[in-house]
Amino acid sequence: MSDDTSLASFHDSLQQPFPPGGLSPLLTALWWAGKGEWVTAHDQIAALPGANAAWIHAYLHRWEGDLSNAAYWYRNAGRSMPDNELGLDTEWQAIVQELLKAS
């Protein structure tokens, strides 16, 4: 399956009321974020370790508008905080694609 197809399938699954079975905790958090469920996404990611979890955590705080907290999590992820030119949807897609490739 190509990355685009994987992303498209993941995006299409947002039409369902619950995430598809078999998603990693990281992708489950992104699935809830894709549904616009910030609190549920944050609850899913808050206690998870690792750079990718920190990246998702950073993205969520950027979405929330808490840029100082987002900057902290981007540093923990080993990434630079995107400037305002990179939209939240674009960053969400980039994270999903990277995690789908890794799964």
Rank of each mutant, 00 (worst) to 15 (best):
M1Q: 08
S2R: 13
D3F: 09
D4Q: 15
S6P: 05
S6Q: 15
A8G: 07
S9K: 12
S9I: 11
F10L: 02
H11Q: 10
D12Q: 15
S13H: 10
Q16I: 02
P20E: 11
G21L: 14
L23F: 11
L23V: 06
L23Q: 09
L26E: 14
L26Y: 06
L30M: 14
W32L: 07
A33D: 13
W38S: 05
A41R: 00
A41W: 00
H42Q: 05
I45L: 04
I45P: 01
A47M: 04
N52W: 12
A54C: 06
H57F: 10
H57R: 10
A58W: 03
L60C: 05
H61Y: 11
G65W: 06
G65K: 02
D66I: 07
L67Y: 10
L67Q: 12
L67K: 09
S68T: 06
A71F: 01
Y72M: 05
A77L: 03
G78F: 04
R79V: 01
R79Y: 00
S80D: 14
L86M: 11
D89T: 07
T90F: 02
E91D: 15
W92S: 01
A94Q: 15
E98T: 15
E98G: 15
E98F: 13
E98W: 14
A102Q: 15
S103P: 02
